[in-house]
Each structure stands twice: as C-alpha cells, then as structure tokens.
Design a binder for these strands. Structure first.
Length: 416
DNA sequence: TCTGGGGTCCTAGGACCC
DNA sequence: TCTGGGGTCCTAGGACCC
C-alpha cells in the first residue's frame, strides 16, 4: 500500500489578504497587510467583531472574534474595513482553479482551506515539498495573496502542519515527526480541542498534545465521552478520511441575525422572523429541497440562548407554512424578555421534486406559484426588490440574516 | 473583552412501542 | 396494578469548527 501524501492549503489572514489585494488592484497605495487593520462588522449595529486581522494588528494583541470596540482600545489608529463576502468567494474559487492543475482530488474545507491529495503524483511535480512550494508560489504570483501549505500522512496532520509558522510557508508533519513537532504543543492547539475541552483536560493535568496522546483512552472517555476518543486519536495522528471531491449532503440550513436594538414587542419580533423565514425559504427552494423540522432560537440581552423545534407532519419549502410554525414556536418560548438575536434553522431534508404534498395544506399549489413568482423577481432584480408591505416605514430590514448573499457555499464539517 | 453568522456532531431525557 | 428491557423517535442543549 502506498503512503498517502495530503496537502492542506490555508490562506493567510484570508479575508484581510483578499481585501488588501482587491484594494491594491483598485489603485489604492496602501497595503492593508502592512498596517494594523482588520476586517470587521459594524459597531453601531452590534455586530462589531474582528473577522480577520493583519500581522501588524496581531502585534497589538488583537484577536479574531473580539469586539471592534476592544480592538480600537488596543490600537486607536486601527483601520477597519467591512467584509465583502462575494469577493471572498470569488478569490476562493480562483484558488480552487489553480489547485485543480496539481491534483484531480481537492476538497474545500471552508472558504479559505483546501485539502489536496498528492498521493502518487510525484512524477508530475516532484517530491511533496517541491510541489507544495510550486503551488504556494503559483497562487502568490497569479492571485497576489500568500498561503501556508501543510504536508502530512493524512488530513489531520496536514492541517496541523499548515498552522506552524506563518505566513507564506510550507511545513511537513509525517507520522514519524509527530513526537518532535506535534506533541510539545499546548493541548488546545489540537484540532477539535476548544475552550471547554481544554479546561477539562487541564483539570486532569493534561497540558500538551503529547500528554493527551499518552493518556488511557478509557480515562478520557469517562469525562469526555466519544469526543475524548476522537481527540485521543487525533493527538496520536490517527485519522484516515478521504479527500472528498463531492460535497456531503446538507444537514442543516439556517439564518440568524443580531438586531441593532433589543426587541421587546411581538410585532417587531414577527417582522424579524418573517424576514429570516423569507430569506431561508428562498435559499431552500434554490437548493431544490424541502424540510420537515423547524427550529427557532433566541438570544436575550443577557446572552442566554435557547431554542424550540418542531417536526412538521410533512416536508415543505413553502414560506407561508414554515412561517406559521415559526410564529407558534416563538410564542411558546418567548417570556417577553428583551431579545438581542433571533435565528431559524431547518433540518431533515428531501428533494423538492418528489416530495409528498399534504392533504391538509390550505392550497399547496397556489402558494407554490406565489413563492416561485417572488423568487423569480428576487433572482432577476435583487433580493430587496420585493418585500411585504409591513416593512414600509419600519426600522427593520425586510430580509434578515445571511452573510452570504449571492449563492450558497459548501461549508466545513467538524469531522474531517 | 460585553461577545457574528454559517455550519456539524453528540448526548441525554422523555414518550411510545413491543 | 406493578414490574422489565430494548428500540426508535423527538426535543433541548452544548461542544466544536471557520
């Protein structure tokens, strides 16, 4: 059996790099990568967090996910640019086109991370490190941004290797290098060890990936359940999932939004929920799917989060039917406390072409035609070209949620 | 530090059935 | 009326990722 060679390509400070390249192309004489800068939301709309930071911004101890307010305190002259997701998707797709020249087997893991299977391809582009450098420099020369490439015996090791030293670097992490390169690292640098798991491991005096690797898995299972076995295997470099060319079937579809003000009335809440439902059902129909489980979630002004869900008697993608369920679920759970964020999620899908119509629907064909007519107008003239009249003179936007505006993008899975 | 929006997977308890 | 065990479905919540 031939030894597998997997690459993990990771764009350095993706959103910020892409923004910087775009601004240079537009004639700007400032490279955002060379000054303290971040891509972030809008402080006034309460969605103000750091999505990506430049290396100079990192020197001010600015972290991804922190508030723009806090970042500004650390660096008063910080440059903040709003995100442009359509641009990022185009950059991501362009990188994918380059990668396809080097292997028939690539898998997008997120908008800025790709796995590439280089097994048995040495005769084309040389040994793995040479090929990885070729790819890295090809992307830099053609598209203007830098990537890190990790090379490993499986996807996990390749991903860990791409994290080592940044930017614009190639690193290897083969099985025989695990004790020297992986085991000395702090345990929370391991993929799938987040803050909660880190705390529990520290309580047991497990501080490094090496200590985790050499812990009895039964002991880990006793306080982390199956997740303990997963991270124990990862700490030992064991992982064998294939680089998948085709995307896995969708499991969940949702839209949520943080409202610029705390919602305290049913009327405002219903407008938000209608906007979210319209947007979500539009996406669902574009994917040619129907769903049978509807879930509504709320975050209150104390940041407490809770949700209610319900299985419908049949599959549907009809805005009106889903909105009715959403309103019922909301009424069941809301105790009139101020709401900061609302979300709607759909799960359990079937293909819309063949789904069973319900006898109990008021008039399924009529609503289907209505949804289709609205979808066509929105596709042709833009999403905000048509909206319910209750939004006129309202302080609430008609279409809520959805950072990705143009099309749906394949997202990552927590399992490699 | 006063914390977005998009996902996936897992667990636990209760209902219900045989 | 009380006892049992196993299986599946449903629901709520939590952990992780980018």
């Amino acid at each position: 059996m031939t030894k597998r060679v997997i690459f993990h390509i990771d764009v350095n400070s993706a959103y910020l790099s892409w923004e910087a390249v775009y601004q240079l192309q537009q004639g700007s004489n400032v490279d955002l990568r060379e000054i303290p800068s971040v891509v972030g939301g809008d402080i006034k709309k309460r969605s103000g967090i750091v999505l990506a930071k430049s290396i100079p911004a990192k020197k001010y101890n600015i972290k991804t996910g922190e508030t723009l307010f806090s970042a500004k305190l650390k660096c008063p002259h910080l440059v903040i640019v709003p995100p442009r997701y359509k641009l990022y998707m185009d950059c991501s797709a362009a990188m994918g086109e380059i990668l396809k020249k080097y292997s028939p087997s690539i898998q997008f893991f997120s908008i800025d991370e790709v796995f590439l299977d280089y097994t048995n391809l040495e005769r084309h582009f040389g040994p793995p490190e040479m090929a990885a450098n070729l790819i890295k420099d090809d992307i830099k020369k053609t598209l203007g941004f830098t990537v890190n490439i990790g090379i490993g015996s499986n996807k996990l090791l390749a991903k860990m290797a791409s994290e080592f030293e940044k930017p614009d670097k190639v690193h290897t992490l083969f099985t025989e290098e695990i004790p020297s390169k992986l085991w000395p690292l702090p345990v929370d640098e391991l993929f799938m060890v987040g803050s909660k798991t880190k705390e529990k491991l520290l309580e047991k005096n497990i501080k490094t990936i090496g200590q985790l690797a050499n812990t009895n898995p039964n002991f880990l299972y006793s306080f982390l359940k199956s997740h303990g076995i997963l991270i124990w295997n990862y700490a030992n470099g064991r992982e064998n999932s294939p680089v998948r060319n085709e995307s896995l079937p969708m499991k969940c579809l949702g839209n949520s939004t943080t409202i610029p003000f705390d919602v305290t009335t049913k009327e405002d809440a219903h407008k938000i929920l209608m906007g979210l439902t319209e947007n979500l059902c539009f996406r669902l129909r574009n994917l040619k799917k129907c769903a049978s489980v509807v879930s509504v979630s709320i975050k209150n002004n104390l940041f407490e989060h809770y949700s209610h869900q319900k299985k419908l008697s049949h599959y549907t993608n009809c805005t009106k039917i889903i909105l009715e369920s959403v309103k019922i679920l909301f009424a069941e759970m809301w105790n009139r406390e101020p709401i900061r964020q609302m979300g709607i999620q759909l799960t359990d899908f079937c293909d819309s072409d063949f789904h069973q119509l319900s006898f109990f629907d008021p008039d399924p064909i009529k609503y289907k035609h209505l949804d289709n007519a609205i979808d066509k107008i929105r596709l042709k003239y833009g999403k905000d070209s048509i909206f319910p009249s209750c939004y006129l003179h309202s302080k609430i936007n008609p279409l809520q949620g959805g950072v990705i505006k143009e099309e749906d993008y394949p997202m990552m899975s927590s399992i490699l």
